[in-house]
Design a binder for these strands. Structure first.
Ligand SMILES: [Mn+2]
Ligand SMILES: [Mn+2]
Ligand SMILES: [Zn+2]
Ligand SMILES: [Zn+2]
Lengths: 157, 157
DNA sequence: TTGTTATTGAAAACCATTTCCATTAATAGA
DNA sequence: TCTATTAATGGAAATGGTTTTCAATAACAA
């Protein structure tokens, strides 16, 4: 491992620098957690995961960094109705792992599904195009979520 | 106007009483505001509208009532990312006025659209059926929202 | 009319997120 | 490599939408 320039090698280096942002240890750590984690982490989840290794990175920085990443389109900010924002690494609507969400309103469990995703995405793209033209919007994102009760929650009525 | 039983005549009387809820002045007032208002009111918006006529109905009651109405499926609770929940009268996915949302991330303006709604709803119903079976969910709601910049916000870049 | 108990209002608590501000560190330029 | 600039940071405090608490009130079954 080369001395000094340990950071700045990731594929996101350019993305950051190109937008005038500095590449800091905190930003890298957060991005790394999101990139390799399971999904839907809250700011505090991320803080917890980072803290052991980087005890000097504060929760405030997590929030600020998540805002930056979100505005750069590198992560998605999600709301599943449990009172805190959740984040997941973005793969872009054309990306291989693009998915939508199925949320249990009983236990807050979230299922990432990719079934039907092709049909959905195709229809969404048409809709997006039509809406963009009709309402003069520059659309750059969408959300589809289904809400219901999972088997367990449905049973315990 | 008949004496005494001024309340309890609305079509929602049965819905309430059937679920064991009491029909109170506050609940009626809130439902009325939602039913005849333009859209996407926050709890405080509703409070403001009700207060002149019913200065003794508190914000706490608004929140509590919105929860009840929401759980009964009579209204939808929405999140447009502006830090407060917003509510709209429900017409049900089969209802005549079912619509989805187009949100400007610049100025928070929200457009209700019904374009493409038929194709969307059809696909959603298939998806819903498929997902429900595969993941053993009892799905009873969905959200579709497009995010982007409206003409004005896109221009002032 | 009366008793039961769901509902209410006001104030306080809650808690995720944001703001403040003095300090630190990433980076461009010498 | 050293230095100056200023973006980024962390901790504490503030913010603000929503929830909780609890004694008082009112809906409604009998
Ligand atoms: Mn996901
Ligand atoms: Mn709407
Ligand atoms: Zn569940
Ligand atoms: Zn706008």
């Amino acid at each position: 491992m080369p001395r000094g320039e340990c950071r700045g090698q990731g594929w996101w280096h350019g993305k950051f620098r190109g937008c005038g942002y500095r590449l800091t240890l905190g930003r890298e750590a957060i991005l790394e957690v999101l990139a390799k984690s399971e999904k839907h982490l809250s700011a505090e989840d991320i803080y917890m995961k980072i803290h052991p290794r980087h005890p000097n990175i504060g929760l405030t920085t997590i929030y600020r960094t998540l805002d930056v990443l979100s505005s750069l389109g590198m992560i998605y900010k999600l709301d599943f109705g449990d009172g805190r924002a959740r984040y997941e690494f973005a793969e872009g609507p054309k990306g291989a792992h693009h998915h939508h969400h199925l949320v249990c309103t009983g236990c807050n469990r979230v299922v990432d599904y990719t079934d039907f995703i092709d049909e959905e995405v195709e229809l969404l793209q048409q809709t997006e195009k039509g809406l963009g033209k009709k309402y003069n919007f520059k659309i750059n994102n969408h959300i589809i979520q289904f809400y219901g009760l999972c088997e367990k929650c449905s049973g315990k009525k």
